[in-house]
Design a protein around this nucleic acid. Sequence first.
DNA 1: TAGCTGACGAAAA
DNA 2: TTTTTCGCCAGCT
Length: 110
Amino acid sequence: MMGDFYEMVYEVVRLIPRGRVTNYGSIARYLGSPQSSRLVGWAMNQSHSKTPPVPAHRVVNRNGELSGRQHFATPVLMEELLKAEGIRVKRNTVVNFKMLFWDPEKELSL
DNA sequence: TAGCTGACGAAAA
DNA sequence: TTTTTCGCCAGCT
């Protein structure tokens, strides 16, 4: 297995509610590896060939920036997908990120 | 084979 | 507050 960690990442990302977003660090922390935030991003890179598809557009960095948009089919796809869910994106950054933020550790622990 | 890089983040200075 | 360094795992040169 190239990593159960990766599959766990995909699973968590798929749990992100529509219209909400989270960041790499929170996912990594939820999985027990706070310092593996990079691996989450790396996992996203492979998410394109996963089934069911992983809503990677709902995952942004801790600043709410669409840092991974370049890895989508088109640089604007990520923003379009987010806008389609009611999330406003301004200059590659999620507006009201703080409000839309979805923390797996918090949301899934309730 | 060894070293560098990458959709990141936290701590240290 | 801003800049720098380290850690994580896999893939590439």
